[in-house]
């Protein structure tokens, strides 16, 4: 028992049981003092029932004694990333800091003459057994951003150092108005003909998608519909083959189904 709240839970449970046992025995005691024929049994029967019920309850409370839990060993906890990598690597050029030439210790701290590389000390990503030593990424970030913020000079935003490489913008596809769940179309069981999220993105949720994939278009950038949607449920019934003067869907739209059309094309 490690915590007061566990202790109270346990002792109070037991106290209540004893108090109730007392109450029941008090009634029996009382009845023995005034033995009263029929009434005695009228009172005794509910008592027997109560004893049974509380006996069962008592067993339950005692079986709920808190476990000792999982031992937290000395082995380091793993840092398993849950977000896809958003940024490309940043490259640091010593010549971009001409003012600090010769003052190597400013960044290469605790070095006393010798100039070690960062990874010599900050080799591991993160080690719960060695908390004082920031991991390599963190060491870089702390050193760069910390100094830039301190002096209010130099980049502090992610994209000023990192490239946000090869992220397909949503502009190629559709705006986001009215869209609540990316995966309902782009997920594994999404709409046929729509781009699937890559395999390493399958864990992603909506909120995370939009971190990288930014909409660059709005609905007005797309051809509007010159008619209402009332009574017109299947776009492709007319537009698929260009029936009755309806404009034919574009070549690069093949495979699209009704569900996706109105994401971009709204009635004018």
């Amino acid at each position: 028992m490690n915590t007061l709240v566990d202790f109270i839970t346990h002792t109070k449970g037991l106290e209540y049981l004893i108090a109730i046992a007392f109450l029941i025995s008090f009634i029996i005691f009382w009845q023995m003092l005034h033995r009263q024929g029929v009434r005695f049994w009228v009172t005794i029967l509910p008592i027997v029932a109560l004893v049974l019920v509380f006996g069962i309850l008592g067993l339950r409370i005692n079986s709920q004694r808190p476990s000792e839990g999982v031992a937290v060993g000395e082995s380091p906890f793993l840092t398993t990333s849950v977000l896809a990598e958003w940024y490309g690597p940043a490259s640091f050029d010593h010549s971009s800091h001409p003012d600090h030439q010769g003052d190597c210790g400013l960044c290469h701290h605790y070095s006393q003459g010798r100039i070690p590389s960062c990874s010599e000390c900050h080799g591991k990503p993160f080690d719960a057994a060695e908390l004082k030593m920031p991991g390599l990424t963190h060491a870089y970030h702390l050193r760069c951003i910390g100094c830039h913020m301190e002096n209010q000079a130099g980049p502090t935003n992610c994209v000023e150092c990192h490239t946000q490489a090869e992220i397909p913008p949503l502009s190629a596809v559709h705006p986001l108005t009215g869209v609540t769940n990316c995966l309902s179309c782009h997920g594994e069981n999404g709409i046929p003909g729509v781009t699937r999220v890559p395999a390493d993105h399958l864990q992603a949720t909506n909120g995370v998608c939009q971190l990288c994939h930014k909409p660059r278009v709005e609905a007005k950038d797309f051809a509007g519909l010159p008619h209402t949607l009332a009574g017109r449920e299947g776009c492709l019934m007319c537009h698929g083959a260009g029936i009755a003067g309806a404009s034919k869907v574009l070549e690069n739209h093949t495979g699209r189904t009704n569900e996706t059309c109105t994401l971009c094309h709204k009635p004018l």
């Binding site: 840092t79 398993t80 990333s81 849950v82 977000l83 993160f126 920031p134 991991g135 990424t137 963190h138 970030h141 702390l142 951003i145």
Partner: peptide, 8 residues
Amino acid sequence: CATECPVE
């Protein structure tokens, strides 16, 4: 949250 914090 701790895994993803870039600055520890």
